[in-house]
């Protein structure tokens, strides 16, 4: 699956350009954080890379229907038990039954939900739900995992738990591609940064370089907390 290449990708909704000629490469390595003010097009870019949206211009390779796995800002949990939620996408992906059980068990243990396996998933707390969504995606053992603001609606404790899980998934070799508007979180997790502004990639650099001193005026303003739109 990797590397995933986007070349000159554009996308518009109702005539308004959301993304305009975006090019980037997702290669194996440390987590890629997509940063940018609200409305920069981060979520749309993630959906295009994952395959939920089709670019109106440009192309994304490899040309698969769906690339990798994805976790959404608000976790979409099926109206089933925690365990059934884990098994459902694995069954769709054709994971053999015995393997499904093994992976589900391991994933539950990793996110600390083993004791809640038979609970209705939608009765979990917000943090537990997001951990389950992460476990569900990770159990697919994707090469690349897209995370769209996974901690946006979580409290600090739940955020730390989720970040710890993300680090562990990344350590196993899964490429993380994640959006966030939380600069602290970006500093804690990022290996590389893609800075998006008004639908364009303004900067793509290693996290070290970007946080040390952005090359662009917009990037600098964003880090100062001055660029909100």
């Amino acid at each position: 699956m990797l590397p995933i290449r986007a070349e000159g990708v554009s996308y518009a909704v109702g005539g308004a350009a959301i993304l305009d000629g975006v090019s980037l490469t997702i290669a194996p390595g440390a987590p890629m954080l997509i940063l940018g003010p609200n409305g920069a097009g981060k979520s749309v870019l993630l959906r295009l890379l994952h395959g939920l949206l089709r670019p109106e211009a440009g192309r994304i390779t490899p040309a698969a229907a769906i690339r990798g796995a994805m976790v959404f800002q608000r976790p979409v949990l099926l109206r089933r038990s925690v365990l059934a939620n884990l098994r459902y996408p694995m069954a769709l992906a054709g994971v053999p039954r015995a393997e499904r059980a093994r992976r589900a068990e391991a994933a539950l243990a990793e996110v600390g939900l083993s004791t809640l396996a038979s609970r209705p998933a939608r009765r979990l707390s917000g943090g537990e739900q997001q951990r389950l969504a992460l476990a569900r995606a990770a159990a697919l053992e994707p090469q690349v995992l897209f995370l769209d603001e996974p901690c946006a609606s979580l409290d600090p404790a739940a955020t730390r738990a989720v970040e710890e899980i993300i680090r562990r998934i990344a350590a196993r070799g899964t490429k993380i591609v994640m959006t966030t508007h939380d600069l602290g979180q970006a500093r804690r997790l990022a290996g590389e940064v893609v800075f998006l502004h008004r639908g364009r990639v303004v900067e793509a650099a290693s996290a070290e370089r970007f946080f040390a001193g952005p090359a662009s005026a917009e990037g600098a303003a964003f880090l100062q907390g001055e660029l909100l739109w």
């Binding site: 959906r47 994952h50 939920l52 229907a65 769906i66 796995a69 994805m70 959404f72 979409v76 099926l78 109206r79 089933r80 459902y88 996408p89 769709l92 992906a93």
Partner: peptide, 22 residues
């Protein structure tokens, strides 16, 4: 469910039994 199911690679035909059950 639409985005999540499509993310799992489920097309409309596969979505029908899922929706009926859920």
């Amino acid at each position: 469910y639409a985005e999540a199911l499509r993310s799992f690679g489920a097309g409309p035909w596969r979505a029908v039994p899922t929706l009926l059950w859920d």
